[in-house]
Amino acid sequence: MSRRRVRPEELELWQQVARTAQRIRPEEPPRERAAGPEPMIRNPRSAPALPRLEDFQVGQTAGRAAPPHDVLPGISERVAAAPIHMDKKAFQRLKRGKLVPEGKIDLHGMTLDQAHPALMGFILRSYAAGLRLVLVVTGKGKDRDTGGPIPVRHGVLRHNVPQWLRMAPLGPLVLQITEAHLKHGGGGAYYVYLRRQR
């Protein structure tokens, strides 16, 4: 904003306004005006009282554990948390490793591009043959995280197989997916319980 000189008629008008103005608080003595713009002062009677802060010590909450940053549970927890769609007694026997798989596929060493069609073909053939329980071995996976800014999941096949089994065309054929018992591979394998043929 450019500054310009005040013209004499403007100064006369301002002095006329200043003579006719009345003070807001006549009981207070007039203050000496400092050079520069007048600071904004709130009315102390209208200002709300600030709440008193509680006593505290610096660092008193430092010993508390930080909340976990992993918002997505691990694959084992997600598979275990899935609802049970099969007979509960048969499911308990399955979890204890009492049921013997009728078929098995080993996806060790395959890439995602190789494993997906192999799994689809195996499940479709098993369903067509009337098999009920099959074992899908994925392995626990290698730790390929290089420490970059984007973390890499441990065991890519292990994470993708449950998703593939829930998607079409395999989803309608699969009744239950659960981690295998230790004698059948533990966390590196899945029991896939198929529906009966209609």
Rank of each mutant, 00 (worst) to 15 (best):
M1E: 08
S2Q: 15
R3Q: 12
R4G: 01
R4F: 00
V6H: 14
R7N: 03
R7I: 08
P8I: 12
E9C: 01
Q16T: 13
R19V: 04
A21P: 03
P26C: 03
P26R: 10
E27S: 15
E28F: 06
P30C: 09
P30V: 14
A34G: 03
E38D: 10
P39F: 00
P39V: 00
I41Q: 10
R45D: 11
R45Y: 05
A47C: 15
L50H: 06
E54V: 11
E54T: 11
D55K: 11
F56I: 04
F56S: 13
F56T: 07
Q57H: 07
G59S: 07
P68V: 12
D70G: 10
V71E: 13
S76V: 15
A82D: 03
M86Q: 01
D87C: 05
D87R: 07
D87A: 10
K89A: 09
K89W: 02
A90T: 09
R93C: 00
R93E: 01
G97I: 02
V100F: 00
V100G: 00
E102K: 12
G103T: 05
G103Y: 04
I105F: 07
D106W: 00
T111R: 08
D113E: 05
D113P: 00
Q114A: 11
M120T: 15
G121T: 15
S126Q: 13
A128K: 06
A128H: 00
A128M: 00
G130M: 02
L131V: 02
L131D: 10
L131T: 07
L131F: 14
L135D: 01
V136C: 02
V137M: 04
V137N: 01
T138S: 13
G139M: 07
G141F: 13
K142D: 03
D143E: 07
D145R: 02
D145I: 06
D145E: 04
T146P: 10
G148N: 03
P149L: 11
I150T: 12
P151N: 10
P151E: 12
V152Y: 01
G155E: 01
V156Y: 01
L157W: 04
R158Y: 13
P162M: 15
Q163P: 04
W164C: 07
W164V: 12
P169C: 08
L173D: 11
I177F: 05
A180D: 02
G185D: 05
G187P: 08
A189H: 12
Y190S: 03
Y191I: 02
Y193F: 10
L194K: 09
L194F: 13
R195P: 01
